[in-house]
């Protein structure tokens, strides 16, 4: 049990998807404009990563590796991800057409999000157990969501700052991410 708690903390904070492994940087820059989009993306990533992870792990371990087809992992996992997103969108559409219109572009783009694919590939290639992989995926996504929300808060704060002109826009956000990464480094001693 403690091993799993450790795994959760490691995945969410110490090996944070975006601040340590720089997996989802593009999303961090683009989708943290305000709390709303941060939460939307965070929840989407959580659902998609968790579902994809649960499905891809057995396929990766028992199907592809057994028949020595691990090279196909990338494509197969991507297609599974796409299927999950498609299912999710179909579900949302059933519930509310308006929400569907709103969420469709966001969810489709998460297929191209390296955070999702990165973590599910990593789980299979390193060879973690099913439970461990799932914990890593879920808490990795939670950590990503937390980072997005913190970033949204800071962005709101620095919106009217006198940032030097060349740094306005993406550069100052990258510096912010750097400072957040330094802050998160404090968690490394916990394990």
């Amino acid at each position: 049990m403690t091993k799993l708690i450790y795994a959760a903390i490691i995945s969410a904070f110490i090996n944070n998807l975006v601040l340590t492994r720089t997996f989802g940087t593009n999303s961090l820059i683009r989708d943290s404009r305000d709390y709303g989009s941060a939460i939307r993306l965070g929840v989407s990533i959580l659902i998609i990563t968790s579902l994809s992870s649960v499905i891809t792990w057995p396929i990766g371990r028992y199907l592809l590796e057994k028949f020595n087809l691990s090279a196909l992992e990338t494509i197969v996992f991507l297609l599974i991800e796409a299927a999950v997103v498609w299912l999710l969108l179909a579900l949302v559409r059933k519930i509310s057409e308006k929400k569907y219109q709103q969420l469709s572009p966001l969810l489709t783009l998460t297929i191209a999000n390296s955070a999702v694919l990165g973590i599910i590939l990593n789980n299979v290639s390193v060879g973690y157990s099913f439970v461990r992989s799932t914990v890593f995926s879920i808490f990795g996504a939670i950590g990503f969501g937390i980072t997005l929300i913190l970033m949204a808060g800071i962005r709101e704060r620095i919106r009217y700052n006198d940032v030097p002109q060349p740094f306005e826009g993406v550069p100052i956000l990258l510096v912010t991410a750097a400072l957040m990464a330094i802050a998160f480094y404090g968690f490394t001693g916990l394990i």
Partner: peptide, 24 residues
């Protein structure tokens, strides 16, 4: 990661400066 973020930010800032202040 932090170093990478900062250095990339500086490179983009330099490019912005050269580009004459064209922001994204």
């Amino acid at each position: 990661a932090p170093g990478g973020f900062i250095i990339l930010a500086c490179i983009i800032a330099i490019a912005n400066k050269i580009n004459g202040g064209r922001r994204l």
